[in-house]
Design a protein around this nucleic acid. Structure first.
Length: 814
RNA sequence: GCCGGGGUGGCGGAACGGUAGACGCGGCGGCCUCAAAAGCCGCUGUCCUCAGGGACAUGCGGGUUCGAUUCCCGCCCCCGGUACCA
């Protein structure tokens, strides 16, 4: 065929036209004037040196399909793209190849941009952001200052992982089995003063708001678990000497089972607990300090690892159990974490498995205080009992049902003055300090007289200096701490000599507000313009990977909430709708270099075109579940696009066949319903099915039968759709108008239906009847079917099940 | 361990409690072509068959129902997340 489908020519032509005409770009005026705005956001990539992989393309295409669909429905769709280019990955890669990240990032960004244009995304390149651009991170620093001035940032000491060989701080994910992922050296723990955002202040709102945002349940659940709300009580145990006299010190514990306080037979402090020194009996201090030092040396991951065998040492000190009045010993053990609750627990070995294991290990007393069915106060325990029952061995509270006991005992503790109910969250404050080079400097100046002072707004950005030696060293502080000319400054308040903060901030802060920046990149004097923000935000649809279901989404919700409270935003939830895409695997296995099954998009586009790749990726499986990329499978969508092309360019004029037209309208209905709910694979299948009907048996198809398929396909394969649209005689871009076809329910309606005929639930035949046929007529027709009649012979009919337009089932006894 | 999500032909995957396997890949046979690409037609879950059909089939075992891939109970396996959270 002389005018065959040539993907590379078609794609080059339309990408050029989109670019020339500004089809996907907005001016500030257009953003301001937009009718029916729709903010279609997708998670921006980290621009690696390898370029986009097929997983990125999958995610972006799925989001782009969504955006293009809404555009064809008449909405003004803003679809920006950017680069999350700061962070340890870029920095480590730069160190590895011996180049400077300031040189590497621009070429990576250029390569990503080229690839993103090539896949035909509807990106507005007028509004791209790059988190490493001082014009961007100026405002990242501004966000920090806002939170700092609102009292939401604080500096405190916290443990970090430290690799003594690489001389660097490691993130938890860089510690593999207690060793540095790069050099294999045993990782240590160090304590370093760092900046934290007080996200825990927002824990309750972050949890409560989940109920009113349209996110997939899966994602919400992940956030709920991460926030980890628990209800319990804070109880105070007085420290006593050997004779049981109070020393004046009390230790607070947090427990979700204050009702089991009568069973608390010992107390455990975290080795890092500040009262360890105070309660330790001088005679026992050598083993106590030895244990504490050992715990301190462990890296953070190993420290929190669940071990089968519990370890710990006795401090020789005692507290009085305020419920029983008895003195109980104080131990320290690393199964108690300083970072949760109060860093101290009352151990109830009878009803907590961890305490039970510990008590057995060290022969501490185990007392039953809850009796389940068939048990009483004397029934022995061979594991912790956590089921229902009533309190026993609990003085006046014996017999209280555990469904009420927490409430009852909490009230009692409060009346006695040694406790009160408390809600606790697992969530920690957000540590944003990185003792690294490749990030935005934290905009703080330390002055001996004034303390930490925020860099004034008119002095932002604090520009990251180009430092050739950015290798971390043993000092444990950022490489910027070696650049004296940079960190020496004067205090903005008093003008005396002062010193800049030399740590940089976490990349999650960069991505914590980027969606606010996109529509406002035209403004250099403000992070986001009030009117533009009001018009475009919150985000209408956010699509991204589930690996960010917790941290990124939680942090950006927090930043939004805080900015809302400070009066900068009039909404507190950034994303109305969030959906996570699935994961692409290749040939049945996770993609990895070692397996050699990594799909590189460029050669695929070379051979088949971007439209085929996009359509194939969306056809692989349900978008929210992912799919298996199999090299051979791409032939399906490739052939489909060829057939569609051939059909459109050779379609005759004339009226549509009624049955074909019915199929077309059914297809419009299905695709219209399925695209917004991300059921892309079945929508594409419907398009294929429809084309098969149009072309069935080599019949002479006409234009009216195939034309509606062009806009229906356009979200998936935008280039070929543009070209065919033009060849069908339309002017301009198909995406410039609300060109989505409407379906006519009357034309989509079937005139006859096939009805399954069963005998005792087994299929024995099928009959075709007119739609709306009376039940009696259908049953009679069913009975008349030869094979059905055979199965009804000589049996007794009990009843007939009739499901309208579906089936007839004769229930018989043999 | 806990929390999610899954187990359906040779493969990817479809199926409001109502004809399991849509659509596609692969395979087989045929057409077109000098040839290739693209395209076209037919067949394709397994077993039995008197060629009309029949039996078995949605991880395993039970249950509810006229009817279960779908709902309920109990297991097994895979994938993702999380890690002693008191």
């Amino acid at each position: 065929m002389k005018d065959g489908y040539d993907p590379s020519a078609v794609e080059a032509k339309w990408q050029r036209l989109w670019d020339e005409r500004g089809t996907n770009r907005f001016t500030l005026e257009q953003l301001r004037a937009a009718k029916d705005p729709y903010y279609n956001l997708m998670m921006f990539p980290y621009p690696s040196a390898e370029g986009l992989h097929v997983g990125n393309i999958y995610a972006f295409t799925g989001a782009d399909v969504h955006g293009r669909y809404h555009r064809l429905r008449g909405k003004t769709v803003f679809e920006p793209m950017g680069f999350d280019a700061f962070g340890i990955h870029s920095e480590n890669f730069a160190l590895k190849v011996g180049k400077h990240p300031m040189d590497l990032i621009p070429s990576n960004v250029a390569n990503f941009t080229r690839q993103l244009k090539r896949i035909g995304g509807m990106f507005d390149w007028n509004h791209a952001v790059d988190t490493t651009d001082p014009d961007y991170y100026k405002w990242t620093q501004w966000v920090f200052v806002q939170l700092f001035e609102a009292g939401l940032a604080e500096r405190k000491e916290a443990p970090v992982n430290w690799c003594p060989s690489c001389m660097t701080v490691l993130a938890n994910e860089q510690v593999i089995a207690g060793e540095c992922e790069r050099c294999g050296t045993a990782v240590e723990q160090r304590r370093i003063a760092q900046w934290f955002f007080k996200i825990t202040k927002y824990a309750e709102r972050l949890l409560d708001n989940l109920a009113r945002i349209d996110w997939s349940e899966k994602t919400k659940k992940a956030q709920v678990n991460w926030l980890g709300r628990s209800e319990g009580a804070r109880l105070r145990f007085p420290v006593v000497d050997e004779k049981g006299r109070e020393t004046g010190t009390t230790i607070e514990v947090y427990t979700t089972r204050p009702d089991t306080v009568f069973g608390a037979t010992y107390m455990v402090l975290s080795p890092e607990h500040p009262l360890v020194d105070k309660v330790t009996n001088p005679g026992l201090s050598p083993p106590v300090y030895a244990y504490r030092d050992k715990a301190r040396q462990k890296d953070l991951v190993a420290r929190q690892k669940v071990d089968k065998t519990k370890t710990g040492v006795s401090t020789g000190g005692y507290v009085r159990n305020p419920a029983t009045g008895q003195s109980i010993p104080i131990w320290i053990a690393d199964y108690v974490l300083m970072g949760y609750g109060t860093g101290a627990i009352m151990a109830v070995p009878g009803h907590d498995q961890r305490d039970f294991d510990f008590a057995q290990q060290f022969e501490l007393p185990i007392v039953r205080v809850v009796a389940g069915p068939g048990a009483d106060a004397t029934t022995s325990l061979d594991e912790a009992y956590v089921g229902p029952g009533v309190l026993v061995n609990s003085g006046r509270f014996d017999g209280t049902d555990v469904t009420d006991s927490v409430r009852v005992l909490t009230r009692w503790a409060a009346e006695q003055g040694w406790g009160e109910g408390q809600v606790n969250y697992r969530l920690h404050d957000w540590c944003i300090s990185r003792q690294r080079y490749w990030g935005p400097p934290i905009p703080i100046i330390y002055c001996d007289a004034c303390g930490p002072v925020a860099v004034p707004a008119d002095q932002l950005p604090v520009v990251l200096p180009r430092v050739e030696d950015f290798q971390p060293d043993d000092s444990g502080v950022s490489p910027l701490a070696r650049v004296e000319s940079w960190y020496r400054t004067t205090c903005p308040k008093c003008g005396k000599p002062a010193r800049r903060e030399t740590d940089v901030s976490d990349t999650f802060l960069d991505s914590g507000w980027y969606f606010l920046r996109y529509p406002s990149t035209d403004f250099r004097d403000r992070p986001f313009d009030a009117a533009i923000t009001k018009k475009w935000l919150p985000v209408d649809s956010y699509i991204g990977g589930h690996e960010h279901a917790v941290l990124h989404l939680l942090y950006s919700r927090f930043v939004t909430m805080a900015l809302h409270d400070l009066g900068h935003l009039d909404f507190e939830e950034p994303y109305d709708v969030f959906r996570a895409h699935g994961l692409i695997i290749s040939e049945g296995a996770k993609m990895s270099k070692s397996k050699g099954n990594v799909i590189v998009p460029d050669p695929v586009i070379e051979e088949y075109g971007a439209d085929t790749l996009r359509t194939y990726l969306m056809f692989l499986g349900p978008f929210e579940e992912g799919g298996d990329y199999r090299q051979e499978g791409i032939q399906g969508p490739y052939g489909f696009l060829h057939r569609l092309w051939d059909t459109v360019v050779s379609a005759g004029e004339g009226t549509a066949d009624a049955a074909v037209e019915r199929k077309v309208h059914q297809t419009i209905r299905q695709v219209t319903e399925q695209i917004p709910s991300l059921q892309y694979n079945t929508a594409i299948a419907a398009l294929m099915e429809c084309l098969n009907v149009v072309r069935a048996g080599g019949r002479a198809y006409v234009r009216a039968e195939v034309e509606p398929l062009v806009p229906l396909l356009a979200p998936f394969a935008p280039h070929i759709a543009e070209e065919l649209w033009e060849r069908l005689g339309h002017r301009g871009s198909i995406f410039d108008g609300a060109n989505w076809p409407a379906y006519d329910p009357a034309k989509a309606a079937e005139t006859s239906v096939t009805i399954a005929v069963q005998v005792n639930g087994k299929l024995r035949g099928s009959i075709s009847v007119a739609k709306g046929a009376a039940e009696a007529a259908v049953v009679a027709a069913a009975r008349a079917d030869e094979n059905v009649a055979r199965h009804l012979e000589g049996v007794q009919e009990k009843k007939v099940i009739y499901v309208k337009e579906r089936l007839v089932n004769f229930v018989v006894v043999a």
